[in-house]
């Protein structure tokens, strides 16, 4: 079964850090203040970040295992 993971549209990410704050797994980081990055290994696809993101640039996408 395919799993859902948070995917960030890096072009439109404003690097505000809202996603990082709500992530229960600490799977999101904003290296060098450029844009948010998801550690796909840690992401459980809960969608909290996608709901929080003020720019709505996070989507849950299915990734093949």
């Amino acid at each position: 079964m395919a799993k859902r993971k948070a995917t960030i549209n890096q072009k439109q990410c404003v690097a505000c850090g809202c996603c990082m704050k709500v992530c229960p797994r600490g799977a999101i980081a904003i290296p060098n203040g450029v844009c948010a990055q998801v550690d796909k290994g840690l992401c459980v696809g809960c969608g909290l970040c996608a709901r929080e993101c003020p720019a709505s640039v996070i989507a849950l996408e299915e990734v093949a295992e």
Partner: peptide, 25 residues
């Protein structure tokens, strides 16, 4: 109107610091 922290999307300080970070990186 939109999400709670919508201001962050167009906050001039945020845009500027991101610009600095991008350039620096």
């Amino acid at each position: 109107l939109f999400k709670p922290r919508s201001w962050c999307v167009y906050c001039p300080m945020g845009t500027m610091t991101q610009l600095i970070c991008k350039a620096k990186h």
